[in-house]
């Protein structure tokens, strides 16, 4: 895949202590390493193996992914709004690439 596109959805504002939902999706083939091509050769595994979310540089969510995760993985999770700042999201590819996205939030 030429360029990997990630999308995130974070509420722009939240009250302190409120539970907020964060939605993420990344376009990725998530090649499991268990398929073979037409000549019978195993297609090497290339998946996103780790997802992290940090707020103002401090990690607040992390998830390890394995081969059973679908292509174009969608992930949503909940956090308690604590402070204003920027969420940074990172998807770690088997090939060493890290795909990034970020979104601001204002907590009042």
């Amino acid at each position: 895949m030429a360029d990997i596109k990630a999308r995130v959805k974070v509420p722009s504002t939240a009250a302190k202590g409120e539970i907020i939902e964060i939605k993420t999706m990344i376009a990725h083939d998530m090649e499991s390493g268990q398929r073979k091509d037409k000549s019978g050769k195993v297609i090497p595994r290339q998946i996103i193996n780790k997802f992290t979310c940090s707020l103002n540089g401090k990690e607040v969510f992390r998830s390890d992914w394995y081969t059973a995760v679908s292509a174009n993985p969608y992930l949503s999770f909940f956090l308690r709004a604590s402070e204003s700042g920027t969420f940074d999201f990172a998807w770690h590819d088997d090939n060493g690439s890290i795909y990034k996205a970020s979104a601001p939030i204002t907590v009042s």
């Binding site: 596109k5 999308r7 939605k23 999706m25 376009a27 292509a71 174009n72 969608y74």
Partner: peptide, 12 residues
């Protein structure tokens, strides 16, 4: 639209 994986193709 956010959850719909087909939208990645539409965006492209």
């Amino acid at each position: 639209d956010f959850q719909n994986p087909g939208m990645a193709w539409v965006d492209e």
